[in-house]
Design a protein around this nucleic acid. Structure first.
Lengths: 231, 231
DNA sequence: CGCGGCTTTGATGTTCATCAAGTAAAGTGG
DNA sequence: CCACTTTACTTGATGAACATCAAAGCCGCG
């Protein structure tokens, strides 16, 4: 927590508009005075399975994965979260400790607020509580639906899905550098490293993408979309 | 809604103790005066995908499945819910319409409360709101974790899991009548009807269960547990 | 009776994980 | 800077798990 710093006006942070619409000026001041920003490097663990839940986390920028440790050593990805999503909505209000881990897939900035302060605000300010619930509901809906969706896709469909996720949600470009290794992609979408490579090669041979090491360029976006949807 | 009836004291309903701890006597009276009970027969649709979310549902008794219509006609099961779980927590606070359907797998009794009344209570009574959030958080946690769990199991593991679910959670007995057809079980745990039957037969041949039409008797519970956990 | 849905079993093919083996790239110590 | 080790990447071959297809028996119902 060495690099944590207090900011009261957080330029570029959408936290206020997203949730704090319902807070009074006085309440916002309280939150601002205790919130901290922290930056995590690619690969760093943000929260570990079993750790005590003491804080409420909000993803400001970057990219994270929420996952569980499998028995066989292989991680089980629950979700990949992009900014403007609450990071720790899953268990925060029901559990004492995290049921899962969160790791940064890329350089990631997180806003940290003491959980008890949030709870107190919910109790005192019902509109704020309802706002959090709406966000929470949307968030878990999203996690469940994409997880269901992804679970049913075949390998090609899953690869297409994640390539489009990177292009659309994260890098906003059809050409980008993969933030993770082939092996990590395999874990993200639950397949073997070999098959990730194999399908990358297939897509390359079919002229759907161009590959240059970590760099990916999407050539036939419509075809990728079709594979993602239909696969 | 013909059989809906007003009950103020709902004997045997745990709704009060589960959520209403935080409500004042006056508030409980309001809720009691507007809540309705409704019973659904096996197979009946409780809510349909796309319908407007107007009410807050609580599962009093019975068994339901939450699912989505797949493109290929095959249903996609999101969750099987047993009593004391809130039925409609997924999208209620974030969406205008349901993203999924809910159907009764068995005779099921549901408590129905106008959603706006619940929202008003959350705004007025922060402790009540926090209580709902805890329940919501636990509920979605449960859905996500079991879905992740189930998704990774092989066919035998999934069959073992659902047999134990019926025995432990629902019928509280090692001998019970399946409330659903083989085909529906296949949909529940995402496999083909043929394989459900095949694995039932395997389990029968191995002396793990006895089968007589719809009736199932679990003989080697420990072995079934091992298959469910490890598979 | 005969039709349609549920159940059961067998045969076949597809999808994917696993194993094996080799190449490229990147870090490490001398 | 070069040998050395390790890690990432890539391709092919094999086998296991599972879906699909086909066919037949069973049962309730009009």
């Amino acid at each position: 927590m060495a690099d944590a710093k207090i900011q009261c006006d957080c330029p570029g942070c959408d936290f206020r508009t997203v949730v704090f619409d319902n807070l009074t000026g006085e309440e916002i001041k309280i939150v601002c005075s205790i919130k901290r920003d922290k930056t995590f490097q690619k690969g760093e663990i943000i929260v570990g399975e079993g750790e005590e839940i003491k804080e409420f986390l909000y993803l400001r920028s970057g990219l994270i994965k929420i996952f569980r440790k499998g028995e066989n050593g292989r991680d089980q990805i629950i979700h990949i979260a992009t900014p403007y999503q609450f990071v720790s909505l899953l268990s925060v209000f029901s559990e004492k400790t995290y049921n899962y881990s969160i790791a940064a897939l890329d350089e990631t900035s997180v806003c940290i607020i003491d959980l008890q302060v949030i709870k107190d605000l919910i109790i005192k300010n019902g509109n704020f509580g309802l706002g959090i619930m709406e966000k929470m509901s949307k968030n878990t809906d999203n996690i469940i639906l994409t997880s269901i969706n992804l679970g049913k896709k075949n390998l090609r469909g899953r690869i297409a899905y994640i390539l489009l996720l990177f292009a659309n949600e994260i890098y906003k470009s059809d050409s980008f550098d993969l933030p993770v290794s082939r092996k990590e992609i395999a874990q993200l979408i639950d397949m073997t490293t070999e098959n990730v490579i194999r399908i990358f090669s297939e897509f390359r041979k079919d002229g759907i993408i161009r590959i240059n090491g970590k760099n990916i360029e999407i050539v036939k976006r419509d075809m990728l979309k079709r594979i993602s949807d239909h696969g």
